[in-house]
Amino acid sequence: MWDTYLYMTLLGVGTGLYLFNYRILTPPLRILGSTIAITWLGTGYSIYIGAVHHKPNIHVYHILIIIQYALYGLMFEKLIDQPLVKRIIRASLVLFALISLSLSLTIQPWNQYNSYATTLFNALIAIWSSYYLWRMFVDIKVEALEQEASFWISTGLLFSSLGSFFAQGLMNYLLVNTANYAIMVYWIHELMDFILFVFFLLAIYIYLRYLPHTQRS
């Protein structure tokens, strides 16, 4: 249970920080702030109906993942400069929503864990974040990577999505073959989430730390 409290606390602090500074954030950071806030609200709602009303709550994650991908996708669409990649990302937003809804309506209904959609989500996020990191590295547009909020966001997303992607695959295998190690995979999954939101907090700290004084007021 402590991990849920910690997770919700990280999300809550992130939401507060991003919304408090919303006015001075760049468009991609505003979108990220909205993603954190929606994740916080969605997860909070899911915990509420699960813990208080003792009702199934998995359907919340079926919807939440579509919104999350739409917002992350929009964020990368703003960050990436290449027109073709922008178009592909925009197309993927619609495609992912359609595929995810189709899966929810067919092979993984609303009362089942949406592992296929989650796996696709992680794969796509890993692609966009690694592409953005690669462009950053190749284009050499910024003075120092570590002073760029988008570097920390992309690194966090890349690492957590790759980790979750493999953990997800391993989880399915373990649940079918041996459930003994499933708990380990669960914790790795949790660790990835913690890392991701710690990186988001780090990103806003870096952004505010290196924001020119003229843009603060």
Partner: peptide
């Protein structure tokens, strides 16, 4: 191990970028 890999990744990418 995962945290070490992450730290190694970040350190090396920043170093190479510099």
């Amino acid at each position: 191990l995962l945290l070490l890999i992450l730290a190694g990744f970040i350190t090396s990418i920043i170093f190479l970028y510099k």
